Amino acid sequence: MMDLDQTDHAILRLLAADATLKASEVGRRVDLSQPAAWRRIKRLTEAGIIAGRRLDLDAAALGFGVTVFLGVKLATKSRVSLEDFERAISAIPEVQTVEHVLGLYDYRLRVVARDLADFERVLRRRIMTLPSVGNVEANVLLSEEQRPGPL
């Protein structure tokens, strides 16, 4: 594990809030030169601490007004059934995340849909027909607060 100092933590907080910041702006905000900031960002990336940068899209602005978290319990749990389920569920574009979890359910899915009728269509025609699907529990997202990471 790489030792991180206060400047590294400050850089990570800045980039977590806005991954588009240039090294010059990061350096200005943490009192480093652009080359020094760039070297630190490169070192954090090479160490795997910065795993990538991503674009967050606003699902509601794109016409997807409903987000549902599904708990899925598989009827059978062999290695093959898990792999078949993961492969099949990953092919459904409305499924944003697939998390294999320990607990009451085997998987937790984040599903977006245009409205509840659209979600019902995705659930009935796409998800419930997948291999090994047993019980499913749905929780509709009412609101979401973005919280800072562990830094």
Results as ranks from 00 to 15, higher is better:
residue 35 P to H: 00
residue 31 D to K: 13
residue 3 D to H: 11
residue 52 G to M: 03
residue 139 N to L: 15
residue 103 G to M: 01
residue 86 E to A: 03
residue 96 Q to D: 10
residue 55 L to P: 06
residue 128 M to Y: 07
residue 124 R to C: 10
residue 132 S to L: 11
residue 25 E to W: 00
residue 33 S to L: 09
residue 115 D to L: 03
residue 106 D to F: 13
residue 119 F to I: 02
residue 143 S to L: 13
residue 42 K to N: 14
residue 12 L to Y: 04
residue 66 V to D: 05
residue 64 F to Q: 06
residue 35 P to N: 01
residue 60 A to W: 11
residue 9 H to N: 10
residue 98 V to E: 04
residue 24 S to Y: 09
residue 127 I to H: 02
residue 10 A to C: 10
residue 57 L to K: 10
residue 44 L to A: 05
residue 18 D to H: 01
residue 46 E to D: 13
residue 56 D to Q: 15
residue 53 R to I: 10
residue 64 F to E: 08
residue 37 A to H: 04
residue 33 S to D: 06
residue 84 D to W: 10
residue 79 R to C: 11
residue 93 P to I: 05
residue 30 V to W: 01
residue 113 A to L: 05
residue 8 D to H: 01
residue 141 L to G: 07
residue 16 A to Q: 08
residue 54 R to K: 14
residue 17 A to R: 07
residue 91 A to I: 09
residue 74 L to M: 05
residue 90 S to E: 09
residue 25 E to Y: 00
residue 120 E to W: 11
residue 151 L to V: 02
residue 132 S to I: 11
residue 113 A to E: 05
residue 62 L to I: 02
residue 16 A to R: 08
residue 93 P to H: 07
residue 147 R to S: 09
residue 143 S to R: 15
residue 138 A to Q: 06
residue 93 P to R: 04
residue 70 L to D: 03
residue 124 R to A: 12
residue 29 R to F: 00
residue 123 L to V: 12
residue 126 R to A: 13
residue 73 K to T: 10
residue 86 E to D: 10
residue 135 N to G: 13
residue 143 S to P: 00
